[in-house]
C-alpha cells in the first residue's frame, strides 16, 4: 500500500488530501471536501495529466516564435519529452491560430496546435522609413 499527499487544484480551496492505493488501484481518499476532489485525487494518483504549452520557431514571421499547446492534457511525466520534440520544429509564416503542429502525438490521439497567429514579415523594401 502506498500513501500520497495530493493538493487539490479543482477550486481555490486547495484541500490537502491523502490517497492510499497501489499502482492503478485507489483504495481510499481522505481530506477532500467535495466529490470533485476525490475524482481529481484518483486521477492524480494513477496518472497526473496537464495541458502542455510551449513555443516553436517561426521562419519569416513578424515574430520569431509562436505559442503552442496540447489539444488535451497529456501525462505530466511526458511534458519535458514534448517540449524537447517541439524544439526541433520550424513553421513557415504566416502561421494561423490553431494551426496543427502535430496531429497525433505518440499515437495517443492528442494533437499540438498553435495558440496565436504570426503574420509574414514584409521585405525591408516595402516597410520603408
Amino acid at each position: 500500500m502506498m500513501e500520497k499527499i495530493i493538493t487539490c487544484t479543482v477550486c481555490p480551496q486547495g484541500c490537502r488530501m491523502t490517497v492510499t492505493g497501489e499502482e492503478l488501484h485507489v483504495s481510499g481518499v481522505t481530506g477532500n471536501k467535495c466529490p470533485r476532489g476525490a475524482e481529481y485525487a484518483q486521477s492524480e494518483f494513477v496518472c497526473p495529466v496537464r495541458t502542455a504549452t510551449s513555443s516553436v520557431r517561426v521562419e519569416g514571421g513578424v515574430r520569431p516564435l509562436v505559442s503552442v499547446r496540447s489539444s488535451r492534457p497529456i501525462p505530466a511525466a511526458r511534458m519535458a519529452e514534448l517540449v524537447e520534440l517541439l524544439r526541433g520544429i520550424r513553421l513557415e509564416a504566416p502561421v494561423a491560430m490553431h494551426q496543427v503542429v502535430f496531429e497525433n502525438l505518440w499515437n495517443s490521439g492528442v494533437g499540438v496546435v498553435t495558440t496565436a497567429e504570426v503574420a509574414k514579415r514584409r521585405s525591408p523594401q516595402t516597410t520603408g522609413c
Partner: peptide
C-alpha cells in the same frame, strides 16, 4: 495554489 502544485511540486 494551483500554480504551486503544477509549477513547483510537479
Amino acid at each position: 495554489t494551483r500554480n504551486r502544485v503544477q509549477c513547483l511540486d510537479d
